[in-house]
Structures are given as structure tokens and as C-alpha cells.
Design a protein around this nucleic acid. Structure first.
Length: 293
DNA sequence: AAGCGAACCTGGCTGC
DNA sequence: TGCAGCCAGGTTCGCT
């Protein structure tokens, strides 16, 4: 489910409920998600306070006041929602349909400020770990992680270097978290369409030519942060699971140009193409084979 | 060694 | 209505 914009939306939603607050009660309702939860998970969080809530790629990182970090990944179907413990549901309050899926509420954080933060994950591809702050960068999940696509490092020259010599399709290279960390299936499709590049093109064709990064590499480096920022502003994309932490839907899905739009006319001005769906390394790719070359 | 398909797990939708 | 089959926003493993 969640790619970088959805995780960033969740981070922004959780911050007011968690940053500066402490865990007054932690309830772990099953032993494992994708991995077993850490030993003595609830006990280790009890009375700890959240100093900051950050995001790296698709990870949420809660800095704790004991020099540990609570790492959280939402997998495909993970989501957080916030409920207020004090007082009953207000008359006329928005009804959250997902509260009926409470069977998949796996972790519940009761915070010292009265907020209840609930982690729900039907498919359980998400996970939570507790890692000493000092060991975070060397952690197996973080060592070798690629560049942050909203950071300053991403430009045409870097893309040219990352993709040099790669025969894999551009689609696969962009999904490779060891190169760029945070893109997923939706935003890769959207970025490639905006850049006018075919998902089937070999990644290596964006490498340097005659000593200079290609025009294509520059175009791609320009549109990646552009599409991600627009999606964050829209609260992410809500297809099935993703909602903001207050239950409202993201709305970037209405701005998709190609994702899940098989058979529709290509939105590129003047283009006569029809959006096609193909499968690349087991995942759906949506693109226009007229204007994406 | 890189690159690809399968696996992990559940639910929702489609079509017979 | 029922049920089989396919698909899903991520990541890792194992095979070639």
C-alpha cells in the first residue's frame, strides 16, 4: 500500500498524537507481524516518551527518550488510526468504516496525552522493531539503502551513475530500494509517464553519454520529487487501505495519469495513445507506448 | 552477478 | 448465491 507519500502522510498525522507524549500502555495482540515483534515489546516501550517522529524511505522512525528507535514499516496493507480515549464518540462524528475491521488491529498505543494510536494490518507484511539509535544506520534494513528521493542528492548525474551498466528495465531499477529508497509501483509508473520514458527501456541507457548525463536522466530526476511532493500535498493515494490517521481519504488517486487507468486515453496533451497494462517482474506497469519512449 | 519469479497473507472484486 | 481465480501500494529468497 504505502509508498513514500503515504508514509509521509501517516507521519504527519501521527506526530501531534505521539511527539512529546509517552506510552502509558502498549497492547500487543499477536506475537508477530511480518517478523516476530521484539522481545518484551510492550514492556520496553512502557513509559518511554517519543522525542521525534521521522521518516526514511518507507520507514517511520519514532525516536525514544532511551536512545532507542521504534522502526515501523507498513508493508502493503498497514495503517494507523488515532482515536481519543477521553469521552464517547461525539454525536455526528464521522463514522470510520474500518473500525469494523478491528480483528486486524494488532498493536495499540495508549499515549499519555489521551490519544490512542492503533496499528491495523490485514496482510501483516508490516513490522516493528526497536533498534538502538547509534546502530540504526548499520542495521541490515538500512545499510545499503538508496538515496532519499526528496533529498538534495537526487539529480540527473546521480541517476546516470546509479543506472550505469544496468540492463534491467527502468521500471525495475526505480523500484530497487538499494538505488532510490521510497518509490513504489504507483509513483514509478507516474514518474515514467511524466518523464516520457518507457518502463521497458534498459536503465543503463540513462547513463552518461560522451561524458555527460543524458537529457533523459535529467528529465527523470526532475519529475520524481515533483510527483512525490504533489502526492504528499494530496494526502497520498487511497486505493484500498490507505487513509490519513483521522480516517479521511487521500485524493492523489484522482490525479493518476496512468496508474490503474488501462484502456483510458493518454492524458499527455496531443497524444493519441491508450494506456496499456503490462507485467514486469510480477508487477503491473501502466504506461503509454506512444509518448513514453 | 544481476535479474526474474515465487513466496509471504488476507480481502475484495470479477466472472462463471 | 457460491465459489474459483485473479489482483493488490512491499520485500526477501532462491534459482538461473
Amino acid at each position: 500500500m504505502p509508498e513514500l507519500p503515504e508514509v509521509e502522510t501517516v507521519r504527519r498525522g501521527l506526530a501531534p498524537a505521539m511527539v512529546g507524549a509517552c506510552f502509558s500502555k502498549v497492547e500487543q495482540r499477536r506475537p508477530d507481524l511480518r517478523f516476530p515483534l521484539p522481545e518484551r515489546f510492550a514492556e520496553r516501550l512502557q513509559d518511554r516518551c517519543v522525542v521525534a517522529l521521522a521518516r526514511r524511505a518507507k520507514y517511520l522512525l519514532a525516536d525514544l527518550d532511551d536512545a532507542n528507535v521504534l522502526m515501523m514499516h507498513l508493508g502493503m496493507s498497514g495503517s494507523f488510526r488515532i482515536e481519543t480515549r477521553k469521552g464517547a464518540r461525539q454525536p455526528g462524528e464521522f463514522h470510520h468504516p474500518r473500525s469494523e475491521a478491528a480483528v486486524h488491529d494488532h498493536v495499540v498505543f495508549d499515549m499519555s496525552n489521551g490519544a490512542r494510536v492503533i496499528y491495523n494490518d490485514p496482510r501483516r507484511f508490516g513490522f516493528m522493531l526497536i533498534v538502538p539509535r547509534a546502530e540504526l544506520d548499520a542495521h541490515p534494513l538500512f545499510a545499503g539503502m538508496g538515496v532519499e528521493p526528496l533529498g538534495n542528492e537526487l539529480d540527473g548525474a546521480l541517476l546516470a551513475r546509479l543506472f550505469a551498466g544496468k540492463s534491467a528495465p527502468l521500471k525495475a531499477a526505480l523500484l530497487d530500494q538499494r538505488l532510490i529508497a521510497g518509490l513504489g509501483n504507483i509513483y514509478v509508473c507516474e514518474a515514467l509517464h511524466r518523464a516520457g520514458l518507457s518502463p521497458r527501456r534498459a536503465a543503463g541507457t540513462l547513463a552518461r553519454r560522451n561524458g555527460a548525463p543524458t537529457e533523459r536522466a535529467h528529465r527523470l530526476a526532475d519529475v520524481i520529487p515533483q510527483v512525490l511532493r504533489e502526492a504528499v500535498e494530496a494526502g497520498g493515494s487511497s486505493l484500498r487501505d490507505h487513509r490519513q490517521t483521522d480516517g479521511t481519504l487521500g485524493y492523489f488517486q484522482h490525479r493518476f495519469r496512468v496508474y490503474d487507468r488501462e484502456g483510458e486515453p493518454c492524458p499527455t496533451p496531443g497524444c493519441t495513445g491508450i494506456i496499456r497494462r503490462i507485467v514486469q517482474s510480477g508487477r503491473s506497469t501502466f504506461f503509454c507506448n506512444v509518448c513514453q519512449k
